[in-house]
Design a protein around this nucleic acid. Sequence first.
DNA 1: GCGCGAGGTCACAGTTCTGTGACACAGAAG
DNA 2: CTTCTGTGTCACAGAACTGTGACCTCGCGC
Lengths: 226, 226
Amino acid sequence: MRVAGILLVEDDPSVRTGLELALTRQGHSVTAYATGEEALDHVRARRPEIVILDVMLPGIDGVEVCRRIRRLDSLPIILLTARGDDLDIVVGLEAGADDYVVKPVEPRVLDARIRAVLRRLESASADRISFGDLVIDRGALKVTLANREIHLTPTELRLLLELVRHPGQVLNRRYLLRAVWDHNHVADSRLVDACVQRIRAKIEPVPAEPVFIHTVRGFGYRFSPP
Amino acid sequence: MRVAGILLVEDDPSVRTGLELALTRQGHSVTAYATGEEALDHVRARRPEIVILDVMLPGIDGVEVCRRIRRLDSLPIILLTARGDDLDIVVGLEAGADDYVVKPVEPRVLDARIRAVLRRLESASADRISFGDLVIDRGALKVTLANREIHLTPTELRLLLELVRHPGQVLNRRYLLRAVWDHNHVADSRLVDACVQRIRAKIEPVPAEPVFIHTVRGFGYRFSPP
DNA sequence: GCGCGAGGTCACAGTTCTGTGACACAGAAG
DNA sequence: CTTCTGTGTCACAGAACTGTGACCTCGCGC
C-alpha cells in the first residue's frame, strides 16, 4: 500500500477530521491544518508529497495559497471546494492546481484522484529511459544492458544522451561536436567516430552490426531502438 | 498559444463535432474518431500528446481502451463520460486515466483540465531543475550559476544530483557513499567532505557560508535552495 | 578558556579519460 | 577493377580526475 505524505488544508473542523480519518484509512499519512498560512509554513519546512487544499479558507484563500506554493515548488495540488461552477474550476486550474474536486466527495474517489496525480508524477519524472535491454538511468547517471551495469565515461554518456534525445533522427558530426564538446572543433576529426566506437564497444552486442547507434554514411549517426 | 495534438474519441457525432470545434478554437490540433479500435491504431501510429476518451463506446469501451493504451505508452488520458457515479470514476482512474470528466462539460473547463494535465507532464519531465541562480540541466549534464557555465566532474555532478534529489533532507555520509560511489567504503574518510568542498568551491558564492549545501553537524549534508 | 571530535582544506600520486594522427577498411562512383 | 571518400580501429601522450592522509579550523560541552 502506497503511503503518501499528504498535507490537508480545510477550515471546517468536521470535514477536516472526516477526510483526515478517511485518507488515513486508505493508507496515507496525513497532516491537517485549518489555514493557508500554516500550510505554506508546512510546505516550506516539510515538503509534503501532495497538497489537498480547500478553496474557501479564512485569510489567504485556497487559490492564492496554490499560487504561492507554485512559486516554491512544483508539488502536486488538488483543490477542493463546495463551489463547482465553471469559472472557479478554470481559475483554480490556471493557478497551478493539478485537479479540482467538488465537495462533497466520496473518500475513495478522492483517493483515486490522489493516486492518479501521484502516478502521473512518478511515471513522468521517471529518471530512466529504456530501449529494449538498454536502460539509461539519468538520475543515477548509470547505464545498464540486460541488467548488467555498463560503465560509460562522462563524454560517452553525454554523446549517448544527445543521440537518445532525438531517437530516429540523424545527427551530423558538426552538431554532435557542438552539443557534446561545445567547442567549434575542426570538422574533420575522428573525435566523434572514436567516441561512438567506444560506446558501441560497450553497449552493442556485436559492435560491427550496431543495434542502437547506426551509421548513416555521409550524414552522421542515428540512434534507433531495436 | 500552446498547440497540442489531441486524439478525441467519441461515438456521438454531434458531441464529437462540437468538442472538436471547441478544442480547435482553443488552439489545439484535434483528430477525432468514433471507435476504440481506430483510436488504438492512431495511438500506435501517431503518438498523440493527449487522448480524450468517451467511456461509452461501441465495441471496446473507453476504460478498456484506456488500459490498452497504457500498455503501449504512458501518454496522458482524460476520460469523458455521462455516467458520473463514484464507482465509475474510481474504476476509470484505476485503469490509468489522468482525469475523469463528467459530460456535459464546458469547453473551457475541458481545456483547463487538458492544460493542467499537460503542464504537470511538462514540469515533471523537465530536464532542468533550478534553485535560484543555480540551474542543473540533466539532459545536457551541465550546471550553470547565474548563466555562467560551471564545470563539474562526474563524481561531483553525481553527488550534487543525489543531494538535489532530496531537497531539504539531511543525507548522511554512509548513504552518500553508497549512492554516489556505490561501494561500502571505510566510514571514516574525507571522501565525501572533499567532494562537497570541491562542489562548494564551484557553486557557492562564499564557500565558507554555503547557500546550497549545508553542513548538519553530526549527521551529514542537506541541500536546501536559498 | 580548554579539550575533543567533527568537518574543512590541501597537495599529491596513481588512475582514468580524451583528443589526435596514422592507418585499415568499406562503399560508391567511374 | 581502380579510385576516392567516408568511417572504423588503435595506440599513445597529455590532461583531468580522484582517493588518501596529514594537518588545520570550528563548534560544542565542560
